[in-house]
Write a protein that binds this DNA or RNA. Sequence first.
DNA 1: CCGGTTATTGGCACAACGCCAACAAGCACG
DNA 2: CGTGCTTGTTGGCGTTGTGCCAATAACCGG
Lengths: 219, 219
Amino acid sequence: MTAVAPRWNRLEHDERRSQILTHARRLFSERHFGAVSTAEIARAAGVARGLIHHYFGTKRDLYLEALQTMVSMPLQPVPAELDGRDPEQLLAEGVDRWLEMLSRNRETWIAARGAQGFGRDSDVESILEDARENAVDEVIAAMRPGEEPAAAPPEFRALVRAYAGLAEATSLEWLQHGRLTREQARALLYEGFIAVFRQVLIAVEAAGVAAPPQKAIPA
Amino acid sequence: MTAVAPRWNRLEHDERRSQILTHARRLFSERHFGAVSTAEIARAAGVARGLIHHYFGTKRDLYLEALQTMVSMPLQPVPAELDGRDPEQLLAEGVDRWLEMLSRNRETWIAARGAQGFGRDSDVESILEDARENAVDEVIAAMRPGEEPAAAPPEFRALVRAYAGLAEATSLEWLQHGRLTREQARALLYEGFIAVFRQVLIAVEAAGVAAPPQKAIPA
DNA sequence: CCGGTTATTGGCACAACGCCAACAAGCACG
DNA sequence: CGTGCTTGTTGGCGTTGTGCCAATAACCGG
């Protein structure tokens, strides 16, 4: 009868770590950085506050890691087997997968898009930038099967990125503002893609040869 | 010779206020919220720290007001007299004005775009949302002279917003990544606009009548 | 059963924020 | 030219939250 219930249970390193990370991700999604205290995260995870710093260092580090997992998770719709099929059919399916993913992870996606204010935050910027580059790579890989995405010309990458901007705004108009039905969002994404890569691409390439690359503006 | 130099000079209410606001805007643009202390803002403005709270309340309030002035200032390129002239000519001029504004306020615009992390911040969201709505209104007013912008159908607003997303991404590809020359950015913005409002609009409207408005998704 | 490893805790120290009462700069009036 | 009043401005105090560290105890291997 000496079996005394332990005051706390001891978890494996990664297990406890991901547990804290899960709660942190949820809280940081609901409110902005300053409105979430480490004490609250600790309470939600059922651990002492000090443990958070033991695993993640500073509160900001935890935030950045949560952001990292947030943006790298839901942004990759499963690419289907797209061998040698009709391109327009593939596009239509890709748009549908995107819309489907959105309607399933609505809250997550909106939160991941982020709504902080302004200011240069190089850490946050690089995380988001990497995520966007990966997304662009996926699109390029789907458009040019067999070729290396990194080998695509810069203005082509830029064009994909521009379309991504259009897609992001379109998705938000559907999900948040309700100014588009799902059908309309689909049409906009589908036709927008065709328009951008059918005619706009030609114009951009023409502008590229007409006026040879002027000096790149430094970041 | 009893003229003693005063230890500090007394400014008018709005004058001191805008002075603090200027320095706060600069600092918040360079670094993220947490990396800027009220003490630093006070030091930069040459005032006591307490004065900041006297004028703006909390640090967050100051931040929000700085953001407010930031997004409402540089985003409005001066609309020229666009009476009954050639639409395509007007578009070309509008694009040039936009590019010109960008190259002049490069740092400001990039900072105002924000290096957001994630999380829902209703205050920040509404400020940014208002700014975007105003920008959309300006574009609609330019496209439909004499009509009330608010009277435009929702899917039209959404389309303008989608184009704005494309324009934002395009601008960043030029300014920050240098993957587009200015000429290419101009071509992309110009042709993209035509493509979106020539053919995509038709498809979106068709999708609207084909599938009548389903229930709006609440914010 | 017992000693070692290490996950976990609780509390201390420090920095930053919010607030408030006292002070003084400049103006109006005598 | 002095004097009192208005209010812009200051300095410091209390509180909150973060970062860190030494002590503790849960679990595993011998």
